[in-house]
Simulated assay, not measured.
Amino acid sequence: MKLDIRYGEHPGDAKHYDTETMRNHFLFDKAFIENEISLCYTHSDRVVFGGACPAGKKLRLEGGKDFGSDVFLDRRELGIICIAGNGTVSAGGTDYPMKKGDGMYIGKGVADVEFSSGGSGPAKFYLVSAPAHTAYPTVFIPIEKANPRKLGDPENVNVRTIYQYVHPAVCQSCQLVMGMTILEPGSVWNTMPCHTHERRMEVYFYFDMKPGSVVFHLHGQPQETRHIVMNNEQCVISPSWSIHSGVGTGAYTFIWGMAGENQTFDDMDHVAMEDLR
């Protein structure tokens, strides 16, 4: 298992970052490596995120010194969404076959978590984990059971459906909230007008982008905005003080994962368009 560690940043420091420094601090571009579990540990709410890409062998989620336990989920919870291929997640001795778009929640204390692929090529499982203080049951969440919320309008080119997976409307969790947003053809904006949520951080993972497409992910405090150019299957960390919005040159989908003080989806500090700088 590969682990990249990122430390916290003060917004007063981050506003002075150049492009390379921004990318070094907030961009994670190695989520999927064949036959590896590749993770990033951010000190923003101690969230861990990344991918498992089994290609011909099973991959086991391990703990270690960085987590203070040999069992990864000893004091953590985990959300998973399959973004490509077909495979199986084994959790606590039970196998869960998964297709693209299926997800699941695995609670604190589950000792054995393994990933494997079907016969049609490597599956890709995107993972988000947060510290947990209570054990909740493991729940398999096919996309048909996720909670959909359709937002936006064609005039603002932001028609999208938000599928809530790890969310109070679907299953119990300690602090992790996770879902997937799919933009409709012709729509390129997400989360604009933008917001922050001072009580929780967020990680975005962009995927299903056509070759040659990019997403301009907006970042920073509302009066000190920056952007990070994102390619397919890349992740970006948004601390609680940062906006998190994006606009693409073509179609894309993204997975969002949040952790912090509460799980109220609409607990946002909205930013008026005229106040953006």
Results as ranks from 00 to 15, higher is better:
Asn232His: 13
Ser116Val: 02
Arg6Thr: 04
Gly85Asp: 03
Phe125Tyr: 15
Leu39Ser: 01
His217Lys: 08
Phe216Gln: 03
His25Gln: 14
Pro97Ile: 01
His195Ser: 02
Thr191Tyr: 05
Pro168Ile: 07
Asp74Val: 08
Val113Glu: 00
Ala132Gly: 11
Val110Ala: 03
Pro211Trp: 11
Val236Ile: 13
Val110His: 00
Gln164His: 09
Ala251Phe: 02
Asp112Tyr: 05
Thr225Leu: 15
Gly109Tyr: 01
Ser240Ala: 13
Pro211Glu: 12
Pro222Gln: 12
Leu276Ala: 04
Ser69Lys: 00
Val271Gln: 02
Val247Ala: 11
Val110Met: 04
Lys58Met: 07
Tyr165Trp: 08
Gly119Leu: 14
Leu39Pro: 02
Ser120Lys: 14
Ser213His: 15
Arg75His: 12
Thr21Arg: 13
His270Phe: 12
Ala259Leu: 08
Phe140Pro: 01
Thr94Lys: 15
Leu218Lys: 08
Ser69Leu: 01
Cys194Tyr: 01
Ser245Asp: 08
Phe254Gly: 06
Phe67Arg: 00
Gly186Ile: 14
Arg149Trp: 06
Gly220Leu: 10
Tyr7Ala: 08
His43Gln: 15
Lys210Arg: 15
Ser240Gly: 04
Glu20Gly: 10
Asp29Phe: 08
Arg277Gly: 09
Met268Ser: 02
Gly101Tyr: 03
Met178Val: 06
Arg200Glu: 02
Lys99Ser: 14
Ser38Leu: 09
Ser90Val: 15
Val128Tyr: 07
Asp45Phe: 05
His217Gly: 07
Ile143Met: 14
Leu176Ile: 10
Ile81Arg: 03
Asp18Leu: 10
Cys174Gly: 11
Glu184Lys: 11
Gly93Ala: 10
Lys58Phe: 03
Ile80Met: 04
Met22Ala: 06
Ala123Asp: 09
Asp102Glu: 13
Arg226Gln: 15
Met273Ser: 03
Thr196Pro: 01
Gln164Glu: 12
Ala111Gly: 03
Arg160Asn: 02
His219Val: 07
Val71Ala: 05
Phe205Gly: 00
Pro148Val: 09
Gln221Ile: 07
His227Lys: 15
Val157Trp: 02
Arg149Cys: 06
Ser187Ala: 12
Gly107Trp: 01
Gly85Pro: 04
Asp112Ala: 07
Gly85Cys: 06
Gly118His: 09
